[in-house]
């Protein structure tokens, strides 16, 4: 085993005051609240994350999903309630601390430095060292292996991350978090920017992370994606928990309806009825109010050849 793995494993085993035989939920949020001045972004949120399960957190824009992950990831401190990691109340002062306790996060905005090479990004803040120096061959090898497991092949790991496609970048970020995430991995809308095939790959890897015994927090606004992999569903609405249900207690239809806001969707469909979705209109050829620019003969020259 390499240095990084053992250090991650060290973080995963015991910290001060933790018992090594703890078998309750890995992360418990009780009545968590967060206010920014007079704005209550989150209020009274209860979430329980167990290892070996996928907990989906759903919500529309502005529901408080981002605030929630930022608290768990150590970017923000909560202002109400308690967060327990393996039964012990914690308040993470920085992402580094959260990471040391085995919480890895993949952010919506990817959290990769665009001008840095793929392997440097992969091992950022978790570099493998040989004495004081980087062990570059080992890092490149592991990076290539992990990315291959994720189903993408990047022939040149020295390539800047900025030159990869959005999907590839997402996969690099997820592969990194899975590789270093010891207990809990938070995925912030990992499928939002991806095509169908790559979403499928990501969902498969969410399941793999679960099989590896990680507690997965999957943030999404897509109930279909959530229902494909989720064990437990929490729907946030305006900073509150609107639904908290296990897979057994819920169908996809119920989840979709809850997500779309049931009543609101009914109102919306009523409103949209007046636009006649079945209608097809004739192409528009009547002259509009604005004339197209007149080109002089020089500009038109050469157009005929094409």
């Amino acid at each position: 085993m390499n240095a990084a793995r053992t250090s991650a494993a060290r973080a995963a085993t015991t910290h001060a005051g933790e018992s090594s035989t703890y078998d309750g939920p890995v992360l418990e949020l009780e009545n968590i609240g967060k206010s920014y001045g007079n704005v209550h972004a989150l209020r009274g949120v209860n979430i329980t994350v167990r290892q070996g399960e996928v907990t989906c957190v759903l919500g529309d824009n502005g529901a408080g999903k981002s605030t929630l992950i930022k608290i768990v990831a150590g970017l923000h401190e909560y202002s109400e309630g308690t967060m327990k990691l393996r039964g012990i109340v914690r308040q993470f002062g920085s992402p580094r601390v959260a990471q040391a306790f085995g919480i890895a996060t993949v952010y919506q905005d990817l959290a990769l430095a665009p001008l840095m090479s793929v392997w440097r990004n992969f091992f950022l803040a978790n570099e493998i060292r040989k004495g004081p120096f980087l062990d570059i061959p080992t890092m490149k090898r592991i990076c290539a292996e992990e990315l291959t497991k994720m189903g993408i092949v990047i022939p040149d790991l020295d390539r800047a991350v900025g030159s990869l496609s959005g999907g590839q970048r997402q996969v690099v970020a997820i592969a990194r978090a899975i590789y270093f995430g010891a207990r809990v991995i938070i995925l912030d809308e990992p499928t939002a920017a991806l095509g169908v095939k790559q979403s499928g790959v990501v969902l498969k890897y969410i399941a793999k992370a679960r099989d590896a015994g990680l507690g997965v927090i999957f943030i999404t606004h897509n109930p279909h994606h959530a229902y494909l992999v989720g064990n437990h569903f929490v729907v946030l609405k305006l900073g509150h928990v609107a639904l908290d249900a296990h897979r057994d207690e819920l169908t996809l239809e119920q989840l979709t309806a809850e997500m779309a806001g049931g009543q609101e969707l009914a109102e919306l469909s009523h409103e949209l009825r007046s636009v006649h979705p079945e209608k097809v209109v004739l192409p528009h050829d009547a002259p509009g109010g604005i004339e197209a620019p007149e080109l002089d003969p020089n500009e038109l020259a050469g157009m005929e050849d094409v």
Binding site: A73, L75, S94, P95, R96, Q99, T105, Y107, D109, L110, A111, L112, A113, P114, L115, M116, R120, N121, F123, L124, A125, N126, E127, R129, P132, F133, L134, I136, R176
Partner: peptide, 29 residues
């Protein structure tokens, strides 16, 4: 040159300049 290209501090420097929010989020001080 060695610090920049061959130690982990180099990666921290590149990332702090490239995207400091991303660097902070993964745990770079």
């Amino acid at each position: 040159a060695i610090v920049l290209l061959r130690t982990h501090y180099g990666s921290w420097i590149f990332s702090a300049g490239g995207d400091s929010a991303a660097a902070r989020a993964v745990g770079v001080p």
